[in-house]
Design a protein around this nucleic acid. Structure first.
Lengths: 338, 338
DNA sequence: TTGTATGCGTTATCAC
DNA sequence: GTGATAACGCATACAA
């Protein structure tokens, strides 16, 4: 009778198997199944084996939502980026995704399209369903970020906010190396093509540029803000030409490439007529002619570290709040004697 | 008393507000709150307003896990790609993300690293927590894909499997245009640098290449398989040189670029000594010198269509199973007279 | 070691 | 139109 009447709680519809199904097949209670699957070892080896076999047979997959509802943990990390098609973020995404996946976490991704409002909306939408948040090149205000950081573990990439964990590039040494190069090449008058006003990194680069040029007795002008895109660089050309400088440092490689395209169009030769350098060393920077001198950041590593940071906090550790990633000057053909 | 004793079920800990909190504040029952928030209109305007005000005041956010547990719908889409850093997938990701977000869905992303096993694992992990799946350039076997498609709404990008929905590039016209160009330039002997053996698109391109060259009386050899990367192209150079052809068509732009780098290294001039063409028109293809002739695919559109397809199926519609996206020949400097 | 009972926050079914 | 109540699948406190 009892084994013929069928399961009291068999799976109806086409739904997936639950721990109840597994429990029945293994001849144990659901809670035992739960234990066997979540904390192995705290159960007799024999029954655990039976349960695993049953789970396998029913191709049981734990329901993440049900688990999350109870535990409050979703095993999901959110990554919010300004612009998915910006080569800079590819590597960040990859690094973050790899570490997350390796640790059994899922990465959800959202794009703010360089807009603080869009970013805020995305974060609000994701907030309830993730365990932690990575904000890459955030366009949010400091206060907004601090408020978020109080609700969930949060880590910034390329942005520093007091009291909030961050993975940052070592801007200073990168800028120093670049300026030493330009100085040695005889450049005494430089233009900086800045990024968006909301870009923390752009502001830092500017500050260090200012400091270094001062120390070396070089002239420096800021031209911007510019959209951090190829178009942004192209559009800046007229102002660059008017500035009468011998070298241009762009906020990023995209802007540098756009500028070089406009210069080529105008018959200006790089680096003979003017030197150009960028930041990031994106895919494409060594493809362009002349190849672009740039300060390479460790983007994939930044993504990895961001995920790692969150994961260690989620497991109760207390990782260092700020992490500085070294940068490296990559000298190529776009810089030459003044 | 009753309004002083405090809520029977106030939110403990730091947890977010629930519909119970809102219900209490608005003086209604939880089920009324649920109705007011999920299906507006089916409730008296006055109480709905009160509820909305209360929800606002408590900054109530619905708990997606709790909802999902009951409804079985997660409002999440999964996108699995072979290689996140491949420029081809950037646009796919962006398109898919934008449509998903616009419709209130979240996009989770996973990388298979060109491995069928990794891809299978990723899909299995994501399966229980998403409403639909996008497989971009899948490395899975046909049967595995069909099996998945039976469990959840699934759509393929750049891959065709009988009975499974797919967004595909119109390979034929792209290849035809490219071969017409090469033929007109006098090329009669062509090499195809194929992609991975598991690439459906590579196989299709080869087939159409074969058909078209036959029709035009041109010679064609296949060199491959090659990794769909710059390194893959570079490594293929020796075999290309040995093949004594006047033009090379690469499976994708990455391979074409790698090949051109190796050729430059070897002192071979493009297009004078040999013409080169690719597929995809990725970022970087117009940066390289000479700029790459290529067949452009509408990648972002493919991503958009994939999300749209899934969303319409999820809302009960029955969209067309296969969608063909037109391709466009972009003629640049890497192709010239034989 | 294993089973029982309960709750996580929401939606849906059924009354009123 | 609105309010009880059960149920979604899992994890845990407690009991055995």
């Amino acid at each position: 009778m009892t084994h013929d009447a069928g399961p009291e709680r068999s799976r109806r519809k086409s739904g997936a198997a639950t721990i109840y199904d597994v429990a029945e097949l293994a001849g144990v209670s659901p809670s035992t199944v739960s234990r066997a699957l979540s904390k192995p070892g705290r159960i007799s080896a024999a029954t655990e084996a039976r349960i695993r076999a049953a789970a396998e047979q029913l191709s049981f997959r734990i329901n993440p939502m049900a688990r999350a509802l109870h535990t409050g943990r979703t095993s999901t990390l959110a990554l919010v980026v300004a612009d998915i098609t910006n080569p800079v973020v590819f590597d960040i995404v990859r690094g973050a995704e790899q570490v997350a996946t390796a640790e059994g976490y899922t990465l959800v991704i959202a794009e703010s399209q360089e807009s603080g409002a869009t970013e805020a909306a995305a974060v609000q939408r994701l907030l309830p369903s993730v365990d932690g948040i990575i904000l890459a090149t955030s366009r949010l205000e400091d206060d907004a970020i601090r408020a978020l950081a109080q609700q969930k573990p949060l880590v910034l990439i390329n942005r520093a906010v007091d009291g909030v964990a961050a993975i940052l590039p070592d801007v200073e040494t990168g800028v120093a190396g670049l300026l030493e190069l330009l100085h040695d090449l005889g450049h005494r008058s430089i233009a900086y093509l800045s990024g968006p006003t909301t870009s923390w990194v752009s502001a830092r680069r500017w500050e260090h540029l200012l400091e270094q040029t001062e120390r070396r007795g070089m002239g420096l002008v800021e031209i911007g803000p510019n959209a951090p895109t190829i178009a942004g660089g192209t559009e800046a050309w007229r102002r660059v030409r008017a500035a009468k400088v011998t070298a241009v440092v762009a906020f990023n490689d995209l802007i540098a490439i756009g500028l070089m395209q406009a210069m080529a169009q105008a018959g200006v030769t790089v680096p003979d007529d003017m030197s150009v350098a960028g930041f990031d060393d994106i895919f494409g920077s060594e493809l362009i002619v002349p190849a672009l001198t740039t300060v390479r950041s460790q983007l994939e590593l930044a993504g990895r570290r961001a995920s790692s940071h969150l994961l260690s906090r989620l497991s109760g550790e207390d990782p260092t709040e700020a992490e500085l990633l070294s940068t490296e000057l990559v000298t190529r053909g776009s810089t030459g004697p003044a």
